[in-house]
């Protein structure tokens, strides 16, 4: 499997979150584990990908008895 860039991992995470929206909320560890399984991604790159999603505003942290990563409400999906 080709090495995933941080940007590609972020896109893959974003898709995963989008598909589950309204049904399942993911924690950072869920995303990391999924990326490791699908692409063999390492933790550090996953961390960077999550940071990219957050700093760009495509995702936000939400919290309810724990912290989750979600797409912000009432906003058009990122390009």
């Amino acid at each position: 499997m080709a090495e995933m860039t941080v940007e590609q991992l972020a896109d893959a995470m974003y898709e995963m979150i989008k598909e589950a929206k309204g049904m399942k909320k993911y924690k950072a560890t869920d995303l990391q584990k999924a990326m490791a399984e699908r692409f063999g991604a390492d933790k550090q790159t996953c961390k960077q990908a999550i940071r990219l999603l957050m700093d760009s505003g495509r995702c936000i942290y939400t919290y309810f008895g724990g912290s989750y990563i979600e797409i912000p409400p009432d906003q058009p999906p990122a390009p």
């Binding site: 940071r51 957050m54 700093d55 939400t62 919290y63 309810f64 912290s67």
Partner: peptide, 17 residues
């Protein structure tokens, strides 16, 4: 009421809605 989505950009900690 608890929980929420508010915070400062990039951080998931430090603000409680």
């Amino acid at each position: 009421k608890h929980g929420g989505i508010v915070g400062v950009v990039g951080y998931g900690g430090g603000v409680i809605g």
